[in-house]
Amino acid sequence: MALQYYLILSALLFTIGVIGVLVRRNAIIIFMCIELMLNAANLAFVAISRNLGTAEGQLFVFFVMAVAAAEVAIGLAIIVSVFKHRETINVDEVNSLKG
């Protein structure tokens, strides 16, 4: 398998994530799509790291995973507390800051 197969796969995965974030309106689905995009970036990191013969790319994937865990914890806490106040997780209905 040459590198570009992995990169094309990563690009497809990233695009699917972007479609989900742009089209779906359910906050939790948007979260899952962000995870898809992070995974796509990770896959590209690992593939290029393997191509260059170094381990630094894998290390960055490790950091991305830690940040993703932090992001999910904070994000779900925010979603749960928004749901407690507004009884909805539709991101179009949470627009108080719009003025």
Partner: peptide, 12 residues
Amino acid sequence: ILVLILFGVMMT
């Protein structure tokens, strides 16, 4: 992360 997301689904 997936278990956390499932908890979020359950609570909302």
